[in-house]
Write a protein that binds this DNA or RNA. Sequence first.
DNA 1: ATGGCTCTGTTCCAGAGA
Length: 265
Amino acid sequence: MRIATFNVNSIKARLPALLQWLEETRPDVACLQELKCLDADFPAAALEAAGYGAIWQGQKSWNGVAILARDTAPVEVRRGLPGDAEDTQSRYLEAAVDGVLVACLYLPNGNPAPGPKFDYKLGWMTRLARHVAPLLAQPAPVVLAGDWNVIPTEADVYKPASWVGDALFRPEPRAAFAALVEAGWTDALRHLHPDATIYTFWDYMRQRWQRDAGLRIDHLLLNPAAARRLQAAGVDREVRGRERPSDHAPTWVELSAAAAESRSR
DNA sequence: ATGGCTCTGTTCCAGAGA
C-alpha cells in the first residue's frame, strides 16, 4: 500500500501535473496540501475519472487539504485540528482507508519569526502533539503525512547557515518535531535512508532546483503498527523538474499488507 | 541585506509562500 503526500501549490494550476503523477505512480492514498481553492472548485470529477475518491477541506486563496484514495472513498474521521475554536485555516483532515488511519496536514509556515505567525505555528504543533498522542499506541497503522514546514536537522537543508532564524529551521519547531520522533513516531524517509541527502522542496527562486538547493520538509510519520509494515520510502523528484511544477515533490511510503505482516510473524 | 519566482483575487499590484 503506497501512501503519498504532495503539496500541489494550487490544485487548479496543477491539475494536469497531478493527474499525470497519479497515472504514473498510482498511489493508494494521496494527501494533498495547498489546494488554494474553495470547496466548490475542487476538481472531484476529474479525480473520480482518474480512479480516485476524495475528501477535501478548501478555503479561498490559501491552504486547503485533501485525501485521495484509489478505487474507494476515504472514510472521513476528522476535519480540522482540535484545540482552537478560533482557527479557521484549512490545514488538517483525517481519513480511514483500508484499515489505515491517514492524517493529511499542512503545518503553518510561521515566518516571520518571531511574530504572531510563528506563535500560530508553535501553537499548532502543540495541538498536533496533543491530538496524535493517543494514536501512537493504536493497533491500527497510523500515518501522519503532509507538508510539515519543518527542516528536522542540518542534514535536511542544502546550506544550514542560510536558514538559521527561519521559521522552518528554528530550534522550537525542530524540537517539537524531534519530540514526536522521540515519543515513538518514525520519520519514514530518514529511518530507511539515514545517510542520504533527501529533499522534497526547491524554491522557485534563485535556480534552487537547477542547483539542487532543497529542503526536506514533507514528512510521513508512522506509529509503531505502521512502522512494522514499512517496506520503502522515497521522493518522486522528477515531478519537480517538469513544466509548471509545484515547488514540492511527491513523497511516499510503501507499507506491506496486513495479511503479509501476520504471515511474517 | 536585498531580491529572485509563482500562485491568488474585490487583479494590472499586493500578499503569501518557504
